[in-house]
Structure formats: structure tokens, C-alpha cells
Amino acid sequence: MAIHPAGQRRLGVLGLLSPAYLWLTVAIFLPLSAMLYFSVLSDVPFGDTDWHYSLENYRAFWENPVYATLLWKSVKLGLMVTLVSVLVGFPCAYVLAKVIRGRARETLFLLVILPFWSNSLVRIFSWAIVLRGNGVLERSLNAILPFEVDVNLMFSTAAVVIGLVHSYLPYVILTSYLGLQAIDDSLIDAARSMGAGKLTILARVILPLALPGVLAGAVLIFVPVVGSFMEPRILGGRVGTYYGTVIEDQFVAVFNWPLGAALSFVLLAVVLGILALASPILRKAQT
């Protein structure tokens, strides 16, 4: 039986696409479904445990204020890191996109993006060496300043914020840069020739046009920071208990997987809510 050309074509497409998407299904989508299932169990369904369906894990989230408090603490950390990154990163992206030209721009851009593609754990560890008491930061400050200062930022919220900004800053520089680069210079020239000052140009021309890129970067930072646990653990010490570290504990220390799954799912709901709110902006940033 001869295969119809259209049928053959469809088979070809299917053959090329299905391995990748089957893999994603097995390793991403089925696990997420399994986690949803686990979150409504009373105990892990392995071995001869006595388990039943229950919403007690979600009830724990509502009834024990610890979880909601920590989630709010993580959200605040996310907002803080995002805000600092945008304030630091946007001017940087502007300089790269509109001030520097030619080969220097390419090189500097690469230098900004490069750390982002190196090991995040190692970079957090490097901050631990810099920030610890009697560490490099304190010694160099004391060498420069005429008076003795006592800087021990290690194991503080400030250390966590610094480490996370260091990890995610390149995101917002990258997306803002792409947004700024798309702005036609003649628009800026036109505004200037009609008498607009620098601040007016920034507020009325550049910022509105660059906003989708900046917001895309903000979302890309906020989402992983809310779910971070390694950075607060290493740099935060005792004050480093966040929503993410509680989830981590459920899986590696307490072994209450159903509760961990429920807490993860609440986090996922928050993340998806934010992505849904931001998706019109993100789509705009893509074009």
C-alpha cells in the first residue's frame, strides 16, 4: 500500500518532533502531574505505608502561618532583588546599547553576559569568601579607610540579596539591552530637535519603548529568586530560612514528600500567576 505524500509528510514531522517532546513529557510534564497527585496524599505511597487521599497538606499551608509568612518573605526577597537588579542593570544596558559602539560594545556585552553562564553555586561560594568577617571586603575597606570598620555581612539578608543580584543581574541587562537596541536612534534625535531635554527623552521616549524588555528581565529574575534555596542557605546562615529552604527540607531532611509537594505546588501557582500576568508583556518583548 502506497503511503499518501501528505501522510508520509505527517509521519516525517512526527518522527522528528516526538523524541524531544516525549522526553519533555517524561521528565517535566509527568513529574509535575505526579507532584500534584502526591500533594493530596497523607503519606508516600511506597512500601507498606498507610496512606489515603487528603487535603491536609494544603490545610497545613493555610493553618500554619509559618508557611505563608515564609512565602511572603521569599516574595519580598524576590521584589528586592528584582528592584536592585533593574536599577543597577538598566543604566548599564543603556550605556552598552546607546553609548558604546563597534567592537568595544561586543566585547563588553560578552563580559557582562559571561558570568551568567558560569556555575551559580561557585559564584555564591565566591561571595561567601569575600563577605565573611575578617574577609577580603573588611580588610580592603580597612586598608583604604582611615578608620577601622567592622564589616561582617556574611549570614545576613544583605549577603543573600548581594549574592542573588550577582546571580541574576545579567538577565535584566540582556533583556533591557535587546529592548534598547531596537529603539531607532532617529526617534531620539527627533525628540531632541524638537527641544526635549534629556530627562524628557528618557521618560517619554526611551523608557516606554524599553519597558517590555525591562519587565521581561524582571520576571526572569523574580521567578527563580522566589524559589531559591541554595543562595539563602550558603549566604544567609541562620536568617536564611525561606520558602525554598523549607521545601528543600521536606525532600532531603524531613522526608515529608507530600507536604513538600503541596508547598511546591503553591509556589508553582504563584509563579504561574505571575507568568500569566506578565505574558502579554513578554510576548510584546519578543517581537
Binding site: A27, I28, L32, M35, F46, L268
Partner: peptide, 27 residues
């Protein structure tokens, strides 16, 4: 839709993806 499906592995925090994988692979 297939293009949109590429986003979850990138956009969902690894903490969630990682723990979900742990649960599923054990299951």
C-alpha cells in the same frame, strides 16, 4: 502550543522541577 511547551523547563524554578522529578522517578 509546542513552542509554548518549551517554556516550562526554562521558566519554572528548578526547585519545583527537581522535586517533581524526584517524586516521579521514585514512583
Amino acid at each position: 502550543l509546542l513552542q509554548v511547551l518549551l517554556f516550562p523547563p526554562i521558566a519554572i524554578p528548578w526547585l519545583i522541577t527537581g522535586t517533581a522529578m524526584l517524586i516521579f522517578f521514585f514512583g
